[in-house]
């Protein structure tokens, strides 16, 4: 059992990753983790607001067949093929869910369950049949290979070496996410909060819905390499959920989401170094730990705060409204 949980050595866990030899790869992994969590978390905030967290789960699963088919058809691993495949998969998933939900009496939750498991099953079969051709394996599908990010050729642009291709791609997607949210902030907010009002303001809620799903597919597919298809859901929901326990104002939540992304990514690397386990999973565990901390210690609504309030403010029940007089 001793070799199962490695000895905790401060030097090895906290300092070694940032020393000369490991510094570069640690930095790339941390950056990738941060970018993935930040981009996913920002988009995820809208999923949480729209009560569509599990649609996010569905789409993150169903990009797999999209990627697999795109790679098979294009016989390459080009980024274009990947994005096209993911977009198609995202739209197909959304359409299937809508069709099952609206054409039958099957409710939305079952429709989501049916749609993504079917597509994911197709993806897994394709991957296991043509593993060599699509250059994906089942482990990668499950929890990604963020540790391999710094390996291989770096992308360079106009003679300047930028970094590992997946990190560069993710950085572009993250920047684009921030930009899109900044530009369409009003539309997203209104259509998430009140579709009726959105319609009266001339915002096409259906269009916003599909656009969000498409962008979600893009974000998910760029994160795919790093964290696989299943852990993405954690990146989508955990930052936003944690932030919304601390604040109720969307701009603050957005800021906290990014902070959460940075913290969980760096802490995750240290946890993975200590336990020698999957880095992506370790990042999620740290993200969950941060959520747990917010859950307990949140200044507005934390468990501790609630408990204290209960202890200090007896009796718990107080009439808050002026009572009509008994006659």
């Amino acid at each position: 059992m001793n070799d199962f949980i490695p000895h905790f050595d401060f030097q090895r866990v906290f300092l070694a990753p940032w020393t000369a030899n490991n510094l570069e790869s640690t930095a790339w992994i941390a950056l990738m983790g941060f970018l993935v969590t930040a981009a996913c978390g920002l988009v995820g905030n809208y999923l949480i607001l729209r009560r569509m967290a599990l649609v996010g789960d569905a789409i993150s699963h169903s990009v797999l067949p999209g990627i697999a088919i795109a790679f098979l058809l294009s016989r390459s691993r080009s980024a274009t093929a990947m994005f096209v495949g993911a977009l198609a998969a995202g739209i197909v998933t959304t359409v299937i869910i809508e069709v099952i939900h609206h054409k039958t009496r099957v409710k939305q939750d079952s429709a989501i369950g049916i749609a993504f498991t079917t597509l994911f099953a197709i993806g897994v079969i394709l991957v296991s049949l043509f593993a060599a051709k699509v250059d994906l394996d089942q482990e990668c599908v499950l929890y990604g290979e963020i540790a391999f990010v710094p390996l291989g050729e770096f992308t360079s642009f106009a003679g300047i070496v930028l970094g590992p291709p997946s990190v560069v791609r993710m950085a572009i997607v993250t920047l684009a996410t921030v930009l899109l949210i900044a530009v369409f902030y009003k539309e997203l907010l209104v259509s998430s909060f009140d579709p009726g009002l959105a319609a009266s303001l001339g915002i096409n809620a259906v269009l916003v819905h599909y656009a969000l799903m498409c962008w979600l597919s893009v974000v998910v597919v760029s994160a795919f390499e790093a964290v696989g298809a299943i852990l993405v859901i954690a990146m989508l929901i955990l930052p936003g959920a944690t932030a919304s326990l601390i604040s109720q104002r969307l701009p603050v939540i957005m800021g906290l989401t990014v902070l959460h992304a940075a913290l969980s990514s760096v802490l995750g690397i240290h946890l993975a170094t200590w336990l020698e386990c999957s880095t992506a999973a370790a990042m999620v565990i740290m993200a969950s730990t941060l959520f747990g901390a917010a859950w307990i210690f949140s200044p507005t609504d934390g468990l501790l705060r609630r408990w204290l309030r209960k202890r200090l403010a007896e009796p718990a029940v107080e009439p808050t409204v002026q009572m009509p007089q008994n006659s």
């Binding site: 499950l142 299943i230 859901i233 386990c277 999973a281």
Partner: peptide, 24 residues
Amino acid sequence: LKEDTALGMVLATFFSVGVCLLTM
């Protein structure tokens, strides 16, 4: 937090703990 968010979080957290143990 609403039910869907809670479900997604628990799913992801437990699964990642599982993956972590698995790789160990």
